[in-house]
Simulated scan of single mutants.
Amino acid sequence: MEIFNSINEKKFSVLMSVYKNENPEFFCQAVESVMNNTVRPAEIVIVKDGKLPQRLENVCNKILTQYPRYIHFVPLKKNVGLGIALQRGLLECHYDLVARMDTDDIAKPYRFEKQLKVFAHEASVDVCGGWIEEFSVDVEKIDNIRKVPETTKEIYNFAKKRNPFNHMTVMFRKEAVIKVGSYQHFPLLEDYYLWFRMIINKCRMYNIQEILCSVRTGKSMIARRGGLSYFKNEKKLYDCFYKQGYISAGEYITTLTERFIARIAPKEVRALMYRLFLRG
């Protein structure tokens, strides 16, 4: 069993990706929330996914000046999308444990400490996530809490219909992720596709039954998850599930029917379905 003499002694990386449309204020808040954790990472690897506007470069310069020992930028000449950006960034992470963080969310101050304790006491765990609280404008006014299942068995079953992890909360073993092919290009479903490949490779999974991040949602998120193009990506993913024997024909048809209705529904209806059926 892997034991740390002190949680503070275990070094880990944080992996982020930023692109031209990010909000500079939110980006800055996200980095600050990482650095204000009770246990700090040894490094924050930030992929610059293509050329950034000056307002975002200003934030990059600011955080590099504030935290020169921690910040490591990975600049890409052109925008390649989140999957490939994270794939490139992961190769630049120097430590076996890697925590994902989005550039517009806020990590709870105890997040990394709690996750490191899981890895310290459960040597077989490959990925560990947790719950999130969702807000639109004011982080003090929570709209929803997305809970995800706890154990490997529960996660495997849940993943047949819905994403079993809140991506911005996960910490994983770099070796385990690379072994299954790492992140790949799969627009808006990069993480779900990764979890699927880890599941069929029998990786051990765990979700802490507590809130680890505050996450910005709202109308823009609902809009991104609508339309036929999004459904086609989902169908491609569930095709993989079915071909690998992970889900039955009945589960395949039922899930795709639910997804199709949600994607073509008006935004107000989709928002309701998203909360009741598609988020867990």
Rank of each mutant, 00 (worst) to 15 (best):
T152Y: 08
M16K: 00
V59R: 04
I178W: 08
I46N: 00
M168L: 11
G130D: 04
A123M: 09
K179L: 05
P149N: 05
S33D: 04
S6K: 12
E175C: 07
P149F: 02
I264S: 02
M171I: 06
F4P: 08
Y192H: 09
M205I: 08
K267F: 11
V215C: 09
R173P: 02
Y70F: 14
P149D: 03
R197P: 01
N163D: 14
Q54K: 15
D96F: 05
F4L: 11
P53I: 04
S220R: 14
P149H: 05
C93S: 02
A176F: 05
I7G: 06
A85T: 00
M171H: 00
D138S: 10
T257F: 14
H72S: 07
C28E: 15
D126N: 11
A42Y: 08
V125N: 02
Q66I: 09
P164Q: 09
K219I: 14
V127S: 01
L228I: 12
C203R: 06
K232S: 07
T38L: 15
Y206V: 06
E122N: 15
I155C: 05
D104Q: 07
A262G: 05
I46V: 04
P24Q: 08
L97Q: 00
H167G: 12
L64N: 12
Y206S: 07
K108M: 15
N163P: 04
K243C: 08
S124K: 10
Q54L: 15
P109L: 12
D96M: 09
P53K: 08
S214T: 10
R88H: 06
I145C: 09
R88M: 03
F4Q: 13
Y19N: 12
N157H: 13
A262H: 10
